[in-house]
Design a binder for these strands. Structure first.
Lengths: 317, 317
DNA sequence: ATTAATTACGTAATCAGTTACGCAAATATA
DNA sequence: TATATTTGCGTAACTGATTACGTAATTAAT
């Protein structure tokens, strides 16, 4: 089980928490050292009020990055100590405008020395370290703002999954999976049609022998996606992309994208210049995928499928 | 009140907390992404067990840096899920030995991919930043281990206070404070003696005119500490350090140290080679101070004070 | 062999935050 | 003008941690 030993950096969350605790734990005693009767958790609110004089509960919450009930509670505690005073906003009766009381302003005077010393202590630690914590936090905040950890992990997962997916040529043993995967989604959203059965029951005769191709996507050896390139006897298009199906088991693994990409490559290698496809706008993820791949909406082509309500083409560059 | 604007770095605690929150908040969803039924708070325990196979509650608590009740609760939750199993230690009936169950081991297999991806995501963030958070945390942990934030702040306070303290020569207007500060501590711990009154009621005649000195420490203009150097008619010692008194108001401000240091300098500038003093072991802070200044215990000198149970001397280098 | 101190650990109470919810005031919309 | 939506904020319930405390087992000291 020593696999875990190599995955150290996932512990960054824990390490951050522990450091936060260590930095924070002395706070109460530091106030005592300066004879200031204040709870550490009040400080951000206090600080915000000292800077801005007047603020409503919600403004304070936003300023210090807490929820408003948290601020509400803190204010009621500080009120009991007489450090702040409340007053209703004249023009907006919902707002509770909070400001430091005379006693609060006195405390803010007393606290100055403490802030100077704490600041000096932190600067000392910074000066003694090679790596700048303050700046590093800033960078992490920025980077996580740009893209959350969840999103980054999702990308990494997709990347790694892609490596596990192999796209291979159709073989007769895949006829069953080719059929079942397609039947699954077609009958989920629509009903199977005559033309479907022709292609799915006899891919060899109906697709391959006519100059088309079928590709299969395998994930860890298991076939979980299929896609066909049907030769078209048409002056305009070389192939039709059809019978694309991915198992629900493989959802979110990028199988559709890899499969479609491979089939386009195949068409390109065969000298095709234009690919056609038919779909239905109910199938939003599919439409998005086609769009991402460069397909553009076209109209006017006759189709044997009743479920077709959108037609698209891709000009191969 | 824009003073506060300049004291930015005290906010390091808040910034750390917020970053911790941000890094942590996606955790639950990341588990969901991999279809792993686990609460984020279980992970450290899980991880520790995956590395070491068997551990008691207390060992786990130490390993993950939580309190033991916290681990106790987590284990009982994981037990309900069937991820761990408990068993009493045979040789020590108090110990609750915990290990992963079969189901737990299965989860640990499933979780590997997730760890790889999370790790990759964190490495990506690290690679995109100039400042190294991971290393910076390590340095801070080390530095705070060496000396806590509280201790550092205390030092800064002392430094700053020292600057505010001035040591000046005795003037007649300080006779009252010289008397009252000494009476205060003497009568708190002992009773005033004949010799005390002589010196305190008439410092001019009893100390200064005989070739002695008195120094006064002022904190923000207010006299809060006194110390005398009494000329001795003795073949061995030049002066006696006596009547040192610091107001309780100035406790913790290093006044005693500065005062004693100044009086030793005074003696040195007068060509003294040995200073003597008398005290009582009840007065621990005072004895510590004398020790810190280099005074050594001696014995055998006759003394007029009944409260004296320790005698010390300093050889001036 | 008692007695005292220490250790392991579970339960209870507490704490500092959160989310959920509901009321009232203000604002937007029909 | 009536009605719906949004906003401000307080209360309540929950969460993940803590400290405090009690009990039982072990170890040390007399």
């Amino acid at each position: 089980m020593n696999f875990f030993e190599e995955t150290g950096k996932v512990a960054i969350g824990s390490r951050l928490r522990m450091l936060t605790d260590k930095v924070t734990e002395d706070a109460a005693q530091i106030y005592k050292l300066y004879n200031i009767d204040m709870q550490p958790k009040w400080f951000p609110v206090f600080y915000a009020l000292a800077q801005e004089k007047e603020k409503t509960i919600t403004e304070l919450a936003k300023a210090i990055g807490h929820s408003h009930p948290s601020v509400s509670k803190i204010i009621s505690e500080m009120l009991k100590k007489g450090y702040v005073k409340e007053s209703k906003d004249k023009t907006d009766g919902r707002r509770n405008v909070v400001s430091l009381s005379k006693k609060g302003v006195e405390i803010s005077e007393k606290i100055k020395d403490q802030l100077i010393d704490v600041n000096a202590a932190i600067e000392e630690i910074s000066a003694q370290s090679q790596n700048k914590l303050w700046e590093a936090i800033g960078e992490w905040e920025f980077l996580l703002e740009q893209k959350t950890l969840l999103r980054r992990v999702m990308e990494k997962k997709k990347e790694r999954d892609s490596l596990k997916i192999e796209i291979i040529d159709y073989q007769p043993k895949y006829q069953e999976i080719f059929r079942s995967l397609n039947v699954e989604w077609i009958s989920q959203y629509f009903t199977m049609e005559e033309t479907d059965y022709k292609a799915l029951d006899n891919p060899q005769g109906y697709i391959l022998d006519k100059g088309g191709f079928i590709l299969v996507a395998r994930y860890e050896g298991e076939p979980l996606g299929v896609c066909a390139l049907v030769k078209m006897n048409d002056g305009e298009y070389d192939f039709e992309l059809a019978k694309m199906a991915v198992s629900p088991k493989a959802q979110g693994k990028n199988v559709g994208f890899l499969l479609a990409n491979a089939i386009i490559d195949k068409a390109r290698s065969l000298g095709a210049s234009k690919i056609y496809l038919e779909s239905n706008t109910i199938l939003k993820p599919a439409i998005n995928l086609y769009h991402k791949l460069g397909f553009q909406k076209v109209a006017g082509k006759p189709t044997p499928y009743t479920r077709c309500n959108i037609q698209m083409e891709l000009v191969i560059g």
